[in-house]
Design a protein around this nucleic acid. Structure first.
Length: 201
DNA sequence: CAAACGATTTTCT
DNA sequence: GAAAATCGTTTGG
C-alpha cells in the first residue's frame, strides 16, 4: 500500500527515517515507471540541526517546502549537478526532512541504466543521493509534489527489515555542521550492496 | 548586483 | 587519493 499522510506527519523524524528502510520508492516520469527499495536514509531535524537547510528557522524560497505538512517531496540541487531527493516530515511549520540516499533497484532497471548512461547493473547505479535521483529521473522541478501523486510515491510492500540489520551512523558530507555532524542520524541496511560508501565511515 | 559555496559524483593521476 | 565539474541559493556590499 502507498504510505499515507499520517506516516509522514509524525513528530519523530529519526524514527521515520528508520522506518523508511525497506519501503519502495516509485517514480512515474515521462511515462516510464521505475522503483527501488530504500536501503539508506538520513534524518534532518530542522530548526535545531545545523546540518539542515532550515537550521535556526531559516525560511527562504528554497526551504519553504520543508515547512509544509509532511508528505511532500523536497528536491534540492547540489553542486550545480546533483538532484537530492528528500521527504518532508512532521506537521506544518516544523521543517523536518529525510534524505533518501540509496535504493536497491527493483523495476525499470533498463530505463535507469539508460538514464545513467550505463551498460550493466552495478551498485553505483543507485548508491548515493545524486546517483539515485538520476536513475529514477527525479529533478528539482519535482520539488513540492505530494508523495501521493502519480509521479513520485513510496509504498509498503510488506518488506520487513529486522532491527538487527538496521545500522545507525553519522551523516555524510555535513562536516560543516560541527557538533551536529556527530549525531547518529544516518541509517542503512546492514550488508546491502547498494548502500553508498559516503566519505567518512 | 556580485561573490562564495555546497546533504556529490566522476574522472584522472 | 585528489581535483574538477557547474549553477541555484544565500549572503554581503
Amino acid at each position: 500500500m502507498i504510505l499515507t499522510e499520517s506516516f509522514y506527519t509524525r513528530k519523530d523524524v529519526v524514527k521515520i527515517a528508520k522506518e523508511l528502510l525497506g519501503k519502495v520508492l516509485v517514480t512515474n516520469i515521462d511515462g516510464i515507471q521505475t522503483s527501488g527499495m530504500i536501503v539508506e536514509t538520513e534524518a534532518y531535524a530542522g530548526v535545531g540541526d545545523k546540518a539542515s537547510h532550515a537550521y535556526g528557522n531559516r525560511r527562504t524560497n528554497r526551504t519553504e517546502i520543508m515547512f509544509r505538512n509532511g508528505g511532500s517531496a523536497y528536491v534540492y540541487l547540489c553542486y550545480g549537478i546533483h538532484h537530492l531527493f528528500n521527504v518532508v516530515t512532521n506537521v506544518q511549520d516544523v521543517p523536518h526532512a529525510v534524505l533518501i540516499r540509496a535504493i536497491e533497484p527493483l523495476e525499470g532497471i533498463e530505463y535507469m541504466l539508460e538514464r545513467r548512461n550505463k551498460e550493466k547493473l552495478t551498485p553505483a547505479l543507485t548508491a548515493g543521493p545524486g546517483a539515485m535521483s538520476a536513475a529514477l529521473g527525479i529533478v528539482t522541478s519535482h520539488t513540492g509534489l505530494l508523495l501521493r501523486d502519480d509521479a513520485i510515491y513510496i509504498e509498503d510492500r510488506g518488506i520487513k527489515v529486522p532491527a538487527k540489520d538496521i545500522v545507525a551512523a553519522t551523516r555524510v558530507g555535513v562536516a560543516y555542521a560541527q557538533e551536529d555532524a556527530m549525531l547518529p542520524y544516518r541509517f542503512y541496511i546492514k550488508g546491502n550492496k547498494y548502500v553508498s560508501k559516503g566519505k567518512g565511515l
